[in-house]
């Protein structure tokens, strides 16, 4: 079981870090530039750029939109790898040997995804860093302004809210794609279809759960 969990951590978490870092850094930068370009009124203080970047990255971009991207990356990986095991009878082989295949395949993924909040934490950090670099090097705000903005009206509960969402999304990312793979029928073509369908359902579920949790926690 231990080796299985480490393998899932490698496949799901470690292998996703590169793309998450890349996207977070540049999207953070773009959020910062967009905010700056929309602040045309000279009465509005420059530190708002940092404030807006922090809010959008921590509240929505990192937890929700990275999870949607991960529904594509991790989700289709999970569905296609379990689906391939189904169509090539590897799951039957496990069952014949007396292994509880559902448990054997899904449980390590759930455990591995307990590390998912770290991925989102890194995304938050890099998103804000990207925003800071874009603001300072683009000449939109001074480093001091931006950092003041980041510290402005900081509400610790927002961090809790973001990570509660992240945990819920981790669970969704581990389970929905697994079930689509596990219960699929057919051959190689159906594996591809199952991955697509699984992505759609995972994304829809994440968006709805995001809405419900936001309603429950923030209002």
């Amino acid at each position: 079981m231990r080796t299985l969990i480490f393998k899932e951590i490698d496949d799901l978490i470690i292998d996703s870090l590169g793309i998450v870092c890349f996207i977070s850094f540049f999207v953070g930068g773009v959020v910062s530039i967009q905010t700056a370009l929309n602040l045309t009124n000279p009465l509005i203080p420059k530190y708002l750029i940092g404030f807006a970047t922090r809010q959008s990255v921590i509240l929505e971009f990192a937890p929700t939109f990275i999870s949607i991207i991960m529904a594509g990356k991790m989700g289709s990986f999970i569905t296609s790898s379990i689906g391939t095991m189904r169509v090539t009878e590897q799951i039957d082989a496990l069952e014949v040997m007396g292994v509880n295949s559902l448990n054997y395949l899904v449980f390590p993924k759930i455990i591995a995804l307990l590390l998912y909040p770290f991925v989102i934490g890194i995304s938050m950090f890099l998103g804000i860093l990207g925003g800071w670099i874009a603001a300072v090097y683009g000449g939109f705000a001074s480093s001091n302004d931006f950092i003041t903005g980041i510290q402005q009206e900081f509400i610790p509960f927002h961090i809790a809210y973001a990570f509660i969402k992240t945990f819920a999304f981790a669970l969704i990312l581990a389970t929905i794609p697994s079930f689509h793979g596990y219960y699929m029928k057919g051959g190689a073509l159906e594996v591809g279809k199952a991955s697509t369908v699984s992505f759609v359902w995972t994304a829809v579920t994440i968006i709805l759960v995001n809405y419900i949790l936001t309603q429950l926690l923030l209002t």
Binding site: T84, M85, T88, E89, Q90, D92, A93, V96, M97
Partner: peptide, 26 residues
Amino acid sequence: RTEIGMVFQGSALFDSMTVEENVGFP
């Protein structure tokens, strides 16, 4: 079940494991 061995149509080897790990798995 432990007294039964099965050879599946497409072999159904676990692709993530080596030959040795596949054979030793049961």
